[in-house]
Nucleic acid binder design. Structure first.
Ligand SMILES: [Mn+2]
Ligand SMILES: [Mn+2]
Ligand SMILES: [Zn+2]
Ligand SMILES: [Zn+2]
Lengths: 144, 144
DNA sequence: TTCCTTGTTGCAAACGTTCGCAACAAAGGA
DNA sequence: TCCTTTGTTGCGAACGTTTGCAACAAGGAA
């Protein structure tokens, strides 16, 4: 249940301006539910209006991330995904061989993250990040 | 104590050819001790011979990673680093705000990685990867 | 409503990285 | 030693993303 006007209000309260481009981008990513690439967001927005540029999409997504309204994460192989806080928090197991993504809950590793926080004073929250490795299929197939 | 000829032999045994470019790149990264970007490797090699191309550097580093002779890891902000197995295994705490990198030992979170392996059959080893978050300084400075 | 300030946009160039392709050369066999 | 095979290179184009800059327009003030 995304409330786009909440996101917009938050930006306005922080002194940012509300533009048609930002409204479109926020509506798309907030209603989508899953994570999307910048290019996907671009295409969905362009289907509604041609007045959009890929640089603006990246800048708006970055703005949302910087203001805690969305998260950005590395899906490996140079692919980056964005999602609003509707999606998460959780952890991605990204296979570095086949690229498959398994979503697991943060509770599975929260003890270690707490420990990192205690020992190193390093804040690993929000817990939307990726762990890269090898999925079962790819491990079994490995020849070396 | 890097033994370049070991790396070279390993490649040869896998059916790859030993070229002057590969010898140079391996010598640089194996003797360096720390992790380096592809561009850094390029510059060091170029200081010795001009016969090197950035595409070849990337291809060679990828080859080493694919054959388990080096690791590649995301330092955040789109920066990628490479290192031979002399460096590691360990974990990077990468601050998404200031980019600082803290190296911690794998034992700090190995319990969670074991758990992921058990529950999801996902291999997170070798343990040379990054955890993105906020360092103490950047957390204290945060305004929002 | 109109104006002014200044944050935002589109564009084009640049960034780091990957890819296709033709020329080249490492390695093994004759 | 030379030849043949085929893996590797350099180059240039392309990729996804970031950046500088001038034109534009959101939002507040008058
Ligand atoms: Mn996710
Ligand atoms: Mn390291
Ligand atoms: Zn896999
Ligand atoms: Zn920091």
């Amino acid at each position: 249940m995304p409330h786009c006007h909440t996101y917009l209000k938050r930006l306005r309260d922080h002194g940012y301006r509300i533009t048609p481009q930002r409204e479109m981008i926020i509506q798309i990513i907030a209603h989508c539910g899953r994570h999307m690439s910048a290019e996907e967001v671009m295409e969905k927005v362009r289907a509604k209006t041609s007045s959009i540029n890929i640089a603006t999409v990246y800048r708006t997504l970055d703005l949302l991330v910087e203001n805690g309204l969305a998260s950005r994460f590395d899906l490996g192989n140079g692919n980056t995904a964005y999602a609003t806080s509707e999606h998460g928090p959780h952890i991605h197991l990204v296979c570095k061989h086949c690229g498959s993504v398994t979503e697991i809950t943060e509770s599975d590793i929260s003890a270690s993250l707490d420990r990192i926080e205690d020992l190193y004073d390093f804040d690993c929250r929000p817990y939307h990040f990726s762990v890269h490795g090898l999925c079962r299929d790819c491990r079994d197939t490995r020849t070396d």
